[in-house]
């Protein structure tokens, strides 16, 4: 049992470091102009923590852990909807030059 759980931890650690490296390269490729939307998106996806909250809120009946879970679901949902929507709003504002302006130049 002990060996098994330490194995799980090492797999987690492997995933963690590989994800950090992917994150490093992907984030450096983000154009500085979009750093605000980047914060919006990362904010939304970090609320994937909702997964843990749903598991806690899952069982039937009402106990302490279920209430904590439900609060977690509410908080994370605020972020998921809020984060993606505000990012959507930001990104839809980034426009190319319109043809009209181009002609006049």
């Amino acid at each position: 049992m002990e060996a098994h759980s330490s194995e799980v931890f090492v797999i987690g650690l492997t995933v963690f470091f590989l994800a950090c490296i992917i994150g490093y390269y992907v984030v450096w490729s983000v154009t500085p102009a979009l750093h605000s939307p980047l914060m919006g998106v990362t904010n939304a996806i970090s609320s994937v923590i909702i997964v843990g909250a749903i598991l806690a809120a899952g069982p039937q009946g009402f106990d302490t852990s279920k209430i904590f879970g439900l609060i977690g679901v509410v908080l994370a949902s605020v972020n998921i909807f809020g984060g993606f929507l505000v990012t959507y709003r930001m990104l839809s504002m980034f426009k190319k030059k319109t043809k009209k302006i181009k002609e006049k130049e």
């Binding site: 990362t42 994937v48 997964v51």
Partner: peptide, 12 residues
Amino acid sequence: LLIITGALVGAS
């Protein structure tokens, strides 16, 4: 999933 996403956000 949480580990990967957390690491992406943390790195960012």
